[in-house]
Amino acid sequence: MDDPPVPACSPRAPAPAERRILMRALSDPILKVQNLTMRFGGLVAVNDLTFTAGRGDITALIGPNGAGKTTVFNCITGFYKPTTGRMALRHGTIDIDAYVERLTDTPNDHLKSADGSLYLLERMPDFQVSARAKVARTFQNIRLFSGMTVLENLMVAQHNPLMVASNWTIGGLLGFAGFRKREKAAIESAKYWLEKTKLIDRADDPAGELPYGDQRRLEIARAMCTEPVLLCLDEPAAGLNPRESLELNALLRSIRDDHGTSLLLIEHDMSVVMEISDHVVVLDYGTKISDGTPDQVKSDPRVIAAYLGAEDEAEVEKIEAEVGL
């Protein structure tokens, strides 16, 4: 198993409250990434990465440009098949450590027990990561269905339950009552997220015509319409003005607190990271260099060195003195 996430070289012991939060990654994990490696030819984009995301946590993945953060996301959401490594996601309280070895030895990609189910994401085809493991994501460069209306974007996200309710289109074509009821529920849920993201007035406009900030929020709303247990956000605050950024913080907190969805976040805007995340994992050149609460990570010399490009300890100390740490 991975080390306790408190970095060894942390300059000070974490406060008890922080320790409690961090323990959630240990005591109630939702996602366990173990020894994840992704190679593109000779380039190692992610190197032997191990980390845990806790249920109900906002876990931030940070690091300088090109550190491999988006590659990690692409592996988790089935966009890439990792070269090696394991990504175990659980629903319910099934004991990950006890079952993951057993599941790995079988050819299956998931396992159900009385306490919940366990999924090995690296074994699942891309659409099943969303459909069965319930992992949703947004993109750094927005990928809405720009020709469809805002509402339709949210309806597409609810495709699977609607498809079942429509008896694979026959019921939908004949307008069966069961399908109409389910469709109404889907529209209600879409409306809920539109209100939450303040897009309700634009419901019937083509998604491509929305301003940039609205498109970002619509992507989050669409991801939430798949009812995920884990939501992966790739730079949700990129290009937002300070006010929009604050609203985003509130939205993400509400997703965590009111919907029980755990969040995994890539973000460059440190005000967002430090403000809302419970747990921060720092990558540099595809390798994990720090893992802990925001405060611990902020003062970790290796993190500072990675961001500021310092090579040796003495220089780090000099920089620390300069920035007043």
Partner: peptide
């Protein structure tokens, strides 16, 4: 129908459609 919506979604962006759970 949901089927048609899925078709139109695949038409625009297959990868994204897959990430929303569409086969």
């Amino acid at each position: 129908t949901p089927l048609g919506r899925a078709q139109r979604a695949c038409e625009q962006d297959q990868k994204m459609a897959a990430l929303l759970g569409i086969n």
